[in-house]
Design a protein around this nucleic acid. Structure first.
Length: 940
RNA sequence: GCCGAUGUGGCGGAACUGGUAGACGCGCUGGAUUCAAAAUCCAGUUUCUUCGGAAGUGUGGGUUCGAUUCCCACCGUCGGUACCA
């Protein structure tokens, strides 16, 4: 019988399900291992061939660990709240829960089709109330805690209340809003309930605040920074504007240092860690207050990383949106300043980015005093200073900073050298820290290392500045004016938010008549009828962002049905955290940063044992598609003729301009290859698909082909090049699909999808099958294996074990091919060889190996067998083939006994017949011998 | 601009600590089997060559007996980031 993938795969999928083969228990004597895939969002489009790449890799690793004797947790679930289902609901009126559930069913079916070893009894969905109950619960814990900087962790807000009542907040080192006033215990106790609650919001780890947000009018929602790309929404590409709105916010900045330091403890890709480091953007420097020249009481605070350059500060620049601009602008300059501010506000993000090099700004007419030398310096506004970073004001040191230098040059402001090592200040700034200070008052003659502490000490003494650490990381906006998300479990009383009682969770998402904002501009939840807390208080109407549910989900898998806690203590004590996390690098500064933040918080509360939840992470590369275009001659206006030209015939139209029209890849012959084309049938399909081109002319080549242009790019609906894994599985089987995807190349590398070579993988599986079957005849025998056969087996064991350990799955597949070729040539059908080989390959070809394992007489699953042990003795050779090189160039290969010593080889090498001609007339200067590797004779 | 990744036959890729460059697979060429096809099997396949050899891992240098691997400079491609004071 030839290998019949379809029947065998179906049979085993059913058997595994009924027998619970992949069911995982929280109680085991085996050591635990947790392999996690990044949560998929179940989109309506289903899986394409790029999605399973990481799942296959993690499944192989999970199965390998299981065979190694680990109790492996390998779950799957869905991040099922999200915008596409809501957009669909807006268009169709169908409740997003219904569409989502259908999409999940389809995903599940597609995933099962690939033979993954997920324990489906642990499946979770972020949009189910049983799940989001705990997302809401964690949100409430964040509300109930503040960050104590001395302790370096979160503390209950009740402790803060006690402290405020007894001592006030003087000397309290806690993360809080920038301008939190210092109050005494008397002040606190004199406050009414409402005032106290408002005050506490300055400390809570989640809190509502008026803040500038990325408002997307087209989508009617707020986006986080990582959802905005180039000034437009990442999803949909709609324009985004800055708008001041009341939003819930997460005080992630409190954890900035811990998130930075934690990176040192986890084995994640270097580039991913770098992205997080840059995103957090820690800068060490100082804040300095400059007094206004006309009004000493008004201070402008700046942040600088180079306080040592302060004597070179020859002007100050404020962001156009800075609060003080109105107040300080002189009447003479007001018109000018207003004009600049209007202009700056009108510029889109895109324009600002495009014109980075252009110097713009306006003088306010005001001056401030440099506290160190008492010199007045002019105050400008310019949009190169960002309102959202630091204090929105900078002291400009043109000799040391290129932007300041350009600005000074443009406005003819002084450029004062401050270090004797600075060079070429006429042509550019020099940011060096070398040399000794000049023109710098108290630090003249000092070095950088000496100057900085001295200046900071002086600032602190004077009470006008201090050493400060600034982060690029902003607090994360946590509200979305959307329907399909977790309701925020809070209500409003006297304009103050309060939490819904814990035992009333989940706060279930109410039904609404339409999934659109209300007429008064409130979020969709404003449409819910009679939706009030205790019948009288307004609920918070915004919902949580997409990343809420995915910020803790790995714990739910450990204990998915627990109704008492988000995860039971026993479960989390057993599983601890994720040992291997597999997913795309596109989540580097979104999910992977927010989830680390929540995990740090949960660990502060003692609810989870590890500060970092994923010890190791690997990124899978994207599988790209090939986009197939056909060339259309651009017609003049009014000309209704449409002419498509074969790509190899473009030369016949030297004057024409061509448009590239993407064509559905299903119509293309030789898809993915340079010479791909539309044949007559393909052209017919194209016309049926695009009836507006039914009258078009198609200029084909001599073979009657319309040659297409093939380009590697994203696999996307937009390019009609999405390849569905189901189709490939139907044709070749899931095992072949799994092996083929692994064989394409290293998992972490991006690569184009191209099925041209899948036949090789398919052929290989057939030859492997033929080690067991000759047509219908079962040919496995009980003969004693030869040395060579044992060597083939153990070479494979060694190679595959090592390569799986380092996630090099492509080379594993080639090791299987090598072993199969060798055994096939040797006509080896021996159980003693094939049985261990089956176990070795079981994580890859999961169904086929199971089938053959059963045929070998086993009654338990191959996936519960034991990983074959390597016996080194079979790898030892009697002879070793040495390359013999003359001056590094290999001239001969010669066998020597394996136990030859270095001296033996040195003595024997020059006498070898094959190399005599290279030695003639030359002197042997040196013989280099690396035993077991090579021999090199140096002549001259 | 900055940060990161990457560059090897016609193609995907291998070479893990510097030690026979091109494993394995695709494709291609020739052959066997077959009525024919599919499937399968065998041989060949980096380039140039005066058939002795010579060159060759993006380019140019360097270290070394020996470099795809290490160092320096540069070029191309991909990803991230964007005036962060």
């Amino acid at each position: 019988m030839d290998y019949q993938a379809r029947d065998i795969e179906q049979k085993w999928r059913q058997r595994w399900e009924t027998e619970g083969t992949y069911h995982v228990s929280n109680e085991s004597d085996r050591p635990k291992y947790y392999v996690l895939d990044m949560f998929p969002y179940p989109s309506g489009a289903g899986l394409h061939v790029g999605h399973p790449l990481g799942y296959i890799a993690s499944d192989i690793y999970a199965r390998y660990k299981r065979l190694q004797g680990f109790n492996v947790l390998h779950p799957m679930g869905y991040d099922s709240f999200g915008l596409p289902a809501e957009q669909y609901a807006i268009q169709t009126g169908i409740h997003p829960a219904i569409a989502t559930s259908e999409n999940i069913d389809r995903y599940r079916q597609q995933l099962e089709n690939l033979g993954f070893s997920f324990d489906w009894s642990r499946e979770v969905r972020t949009s189910s109330p049983e799940y989001y109950r705990w997302t809401q619960w964690i949100f409430q814990q964040l509300f109930k805690h503040y960050f104590d900087k001395d302790a370096g962790c979160a503390k209950p807000i009740t402790e803060l209340v006690e402290r405020l009542a007894s001592k006030g907040n003087a000397g309290l080192n806690a993360d809080c809003e920038e301008e939190t006033p210092i109050i005494s215990a008397e002040d606190w106790n004199a406050m009414n309930e409402r005032e106290q609650q408002l005050f506490l919001l300055k400390y809570r780890l989640t809190f509502p605040e008026e803040s500038y947000v990325n408002w997307c009018p087209a989508m009617g929602t707020v986006l986080s920074n990582d959802e905005v790309k180039d000034g437009v929404s990442e999803r949909g590409g709609y324009p985004v504007e800055r708008k001041l709105m009341a939003q819930w916010s997460m005080r992630i900045t409190a954890y900035a240092d811990r998130l930075l330091d934690g990176l040192d403890d986890i084995d994640w890709p270097y580039s991913l860690k770098e992205q997080q480091r840059n995103w957090i953007g820690r800068s060490v420097g100082a804040s300095v207050k400059f007094s206004l020249a006309e009004d000493e009481a008004t201070k402008i605070e700046v942040f600088t990383t180079r306080v040592d350059t302060i004597y070179g500060a020859s002007f100050m620049v404020l962001a156009p949106e800075h609060d003080l601009v109105d107040q300080i602008t002189t009447d003479a300059e007001r018109a000018n300043v207003d004009e600049y501010r209007t202009w700056a506000a009108s510029r889109s993000e895109v324009e600002r980015m495009a014109e980075v090099k252009k110097v713009t700004g306006a003088f306010t007419g005001a001056y401030c005093i440099n506290p160190f030398n008492e010199q007045p310096i002019p105050i400008y506004i310019a949009d190169y200073v960002l309102a959202g970073y630091g204090t929105g004001a900078v002291m400009a040191v043109p000799s040391g900073d290129q932007r300041d230098w350009s600005f000074a040059t443009h406005f003819d402001l002084p450029i004062v050298p401050i270090l004797d090592a600075q060079q070429n200040l006429e042509t550019e700034a020099d940011a060096t820290k070398e040399g000794k200070y000049i023109n710098s008052g108290m630090i003249n003659g000092l070095s950088y290392e000496e100057a900085t502490p001295k200046l900071i000490a002086w600032l602190e003494e004077q009470g006008i500045g201090k050493g400060k650490v600034q982060y690029r990381l902003r607090n994360a906006v946590f509200s979305r004016q959307r329907y399909w998300g977790e309701p925020v479990p809070a209500y409003w009383k006297d304009d103050v938010p309060y939490l819904v009682a814990e035992d009333e969770l989940p706060l279930v998402l109410p039904d609404v008549d339409k999934y659109l904002p209300t007429e008064t501009g409130e979020p969709p939840l404003g449409r819910a009828e009679n939706w009030k807390y205790q019948g009288k208080y307004d609920y918070e109407l915004s919902t949580m962002p997409g990343w809420a549910g995915s910020s803790w989900y790995w714990y739910r898998y450990m204990d998915p049905h627990n109704s008492e806690a988000f995860v039971g203590k026993e479960a989390v004590d057993y599983w601890q955290g994720v040992d291997l996390y597999v997913g795309g690098s596109e989540h580097a500064v979104g999910h992977l940063l927010y989830s680390r933040f929540w995990n740090h918080f949960l660990s502060d509360l003692g609810l989870v044992p590890q500060k970092e939840y994923a010890a190791k992470l690997i990124n899978q590369g994207m599988i790209q598609g090939v986009i197939e275009y056909i060339y259309l001659i651009k017609a003049d206006e009014g000309d209704s003729s449409r002419v498509f030209v074969s790509a190899d015939k473009l030369g016949d139209y030297p004057d024409a301009e061509f448009a590239q029209i993407p064509v559905h890849v299903d119509f293309v012959s030789e898809y993915g290859r340079d010479e791909s084309y539309l044949n007559a049938e393909g052209i017919k399909q194209f016309i049926e698909w695009r009836p507006d081109y039914s009258a078009a002319t198609f200029v084909t080549n001599d073979a009657g082909h319309l040659v297409t242009k093939s380009e590697v790019g994203k696999m996307s609906k937009r390019y009609f090049n999405v390849v569905n894994p189901d189709d490939v599985v139907a044709k070749y089987g899931a095992d072949c699909f799994r092996m083929f995807e692994m064989f394409l190349g290293p998992v972490e590398q991006a690569k184009p999808w191209n099925t041209n070579s899948i036949s090789g993988t398919s052929r290989f599986l057939n030859s492997f099958w033929r080690l067991f079957y000759n047509r219908d005849e079962w040919v496995v025998n009980e003969d004693q294996p030869t040395k060579e056969e044992l060597k083939s087996l153990h070479t494979a064991i060694k190679k595959v074990t090592e390569d799986v350990e380092r996630f090099s799955f492509n080379t594993c597949v080639s090791a299987f091919m090598v072993a199969t070729n060798e055994l096939g040539k040797a006509k080896c059908h021996k159980r003693a060889i094939l049985e261990p080989l089956l176990v070795l390959m079981a994580p890859f070809a999961v169904h086929m190996c199971e089938e053959l394992w059963e045929k070998l007489g086993h009654t338990t699953s191959v996936h519960h067998a034991a990983w074959p042990a390597l016996e080194e003795k079979w790898l030892i050779e009697e002879n070793i083939t040495y390359p013999v090189a003359i001056n590094g160039k290999t001239r001969a290969t010669v066998d020597f006994p394996a136990d030859s010593t270095k001296a033996d080889l040195e003595a024997a090498a020059p006498g070898l017949e094959d190399i005599q001609k290279y030695l003639e007339g030359k002197t042997i200067r040196k013989i280099i011998v690396v035993p077991g590797r090579m021999i090199n004779i140096v002549v001259g």
